[in-house]
Design a protein around this nucleic acid. Structure first.
Lengths: 210, 210, 210, 210
DNA sequence: AATGAATGAGATTTCATTCAT
DNA sequence: CATGAATGAAATCTCATTCAT
């Protein structure tokens, strides 16, 4: 990837106590790089360089590249799950809560695609690591699935295939991130986009939009 | 990846006229491997070995790994477009034609995700190669977009946002390929899957399913 | 080197009897490329492409790359020797004949440097091939050495170390081809250059310039 | 070229403080091999093997083969320049100082021929690298040119074309390294050789030898 | 806690050479 | 006579990983 060697003073650096801890810094740097460029296109050196440490330091905190990757992706997914949970806990109609979640996702730069994350790294990851990533993914789904199932239980919406609804919902969100050849999106604003998608989704599920 | 060496003589081989030409064989082998494992996880040696030729033979036919990749993906996309076109040309209501296309996609082992194809290889591909892949992608979209726009023109369906419809349709097909943690799909048969997806899509667009 | 694939019609081409024979064409092409770019920087494919034939055709006429190289260089040196001989045979004072030879060399685009020719290829050439090249080199030297020795015999010049004189003469010619950093030569014209060099050489030998 | 593998442990080696640093060792090894065999005939593996390290170690210290080459040649030229400077600074007549320089060059195994160094590698070197090599070459020339120009200024010798004098001088030194077919030199000792060459040069410049 | 130095294994690519047609 | 197809061997370069300090 990038070349940008920058020498740092020898010896143990003074702890700048206001900084975030090294391992967190590395993890965040790794997450950003991996998501932007993919597992195979980011070397451990890239991560080190961008985090301002040496490769050996990365290995001091993480056992291997695949472990670093798993940790980065899992912690990203955990953050996403928490954000969804927060928005879903609010006391509002399901439609409105879904709207908030949709908007939050459309505004996030990263479109999480777990299939993709696994696909790019599957030759390197251990079964355990794959399992952990799938677990984290499942929790995201469960957050949404729970919201649906809860709304059914409370009679807010009629009974549906919850897994299908969740997957369809997530798939449609990705459509909202679709960029045309000229780089422009499908809709002028994220709000308009969220509205269209959700209207479509709601009609798809219930045949009507109220 | 795999090793399966089998020695073949130097120089030009005796013509076995019944075989498919070498370059086609290589291209098909490459397509399969790239789609299954991703660009970075497949080495040129892997392609060669699986095609039963040597690495040098691959380079005899293709200038570089990225060129081989581009060719493999583009020819795959061309085949998909042709299959869609054939199914869309039939004289049947749009809904039924879409059903056939959906079914065909669900039964195909490969779920094409062009974003992914580009993402995995973007550091290696030239702008020209990227452009060619996007061109091929666009043609697939256009096949579907044309079917929508034609149906609108003929008054078969009411006016819609055709690009959004197309992307939503494709996204929902991918949901049909979704496998749960235990490896089972969402629906028992491809037909049931296609029906559910298409019903959802149609209601999403028109608020009703007829 | 260059990439410039150009397809030629299949099958045996009609003989265009006015053309120079294929093997000569290949030899001349090879000579030019080898001299301009060096042995290792020119591939057999480059030679073939530039001669408008296929690599296999080159191998039809020449046993190996090193053989082609040897032939190209030797025939070049033979041509040079003949040119020198022609100029040296004229019935003029030695000084004037040397002037003609000097001028001819300065005007030739190629500065022959046999050391260099051997150096670049020595790992590839057989002892026999090296010997043949050295033989051809020696003949060039002998042409010049003979002119000196003949002039001594005839009393035209006083006795000198003939081998040293020859090598010094050739070394000084190379100075005439020297280009400064800005690409300009040391003297404005080849004639001025030849004159300066020869004056220097003559004074070096005899301490005076007449 | 040669094979001489000897296993060394992974990771950072125990410090043997008496050894020269690895990068210097590699550079010296590379210089010797490149000068003896030429750029294209020496692989990075050859350099590594001869330096007793692995290829990867070479790449740890040098970005590319061409960079290694440039560094090796430039540092060689710098050493030569310094040797010349040291000999030229002595308070002696120019003729005697030139004699010392000539002798030193004749005794050196390596005859520097920058044209050659560039020619063999030109397809690989970047413009910057070429420039750096030419710069180093120029400094050698300048050392000698300065000695001439200084001697003219001080009235030690009469006015001459300094660039031509320098190039002629260097060309004649190369004659001193000339080996006849049987491997023997032109003169019995380096001292005799230096004397002959310098006498010739001095007469060439001034028409007389005192 | 952090790093500089080193390596093994593997990736892409080039190229001289061969041979059936 | 000439060629297209194929290959073995080697070259350059990358990178995850290790380890003494």
């Amino acid at each position: 990837m990038m070349k940008k060697k920058q020498h740092r003073p020898l010896g143990r650096p003074k702890v700048k106590s206001n900084d975030i801890p090294r391992n967190q810094l590395i993890l965040q740097t790794a997450a950003r790089l991996f998501i932007d460029n993919g597992y195979q296109n980011v070397s451990v050196d890239d991560v080190a360089l961008n985090a301002g440490v040496t490769k050996a330091t990365v290995y001091y905190y993480f056992d291997s590249k695949s472990e670093l990757y798993k940790e980065a992706i899992v912690s990203l997914m955990n953050r996403i799950k928490e954000r969804i949970d927060r928005l879903m806990e609010v006391n509002k109609p399901l439609y409105e809560r879904l709207y908030d979640v949709t908007l939050a996702h459309l505004e996030a730069t990263t479109s999480i695609d777990i299939e993709q994350f696994l696909r790019e790294s599957k030759t390197d990851l251990s079964n355990e690591q794959i399992q952990e990533m799938k677990e984290a993914e499942k929790k995201i789904y469960e957050s949404i699935e729970y919201a649906f199932s809860d709304a059914v239980t409370k009679g807010e919406i009629s009974s549906i295939n919850i897994t299908f609804a969740t997957q369809a919902y997530l798939a449609l969100i990705k459509v909202g991130n679709y960029k045309q050849q000229d780089g422009s999106g499908l809709f002028s604003t994220a709000e308009k986009s969220a509205e269209t998608i959700l209207t479509f989704f709601w009609k798809g599920l219930f045949g009507t939009n109220d």
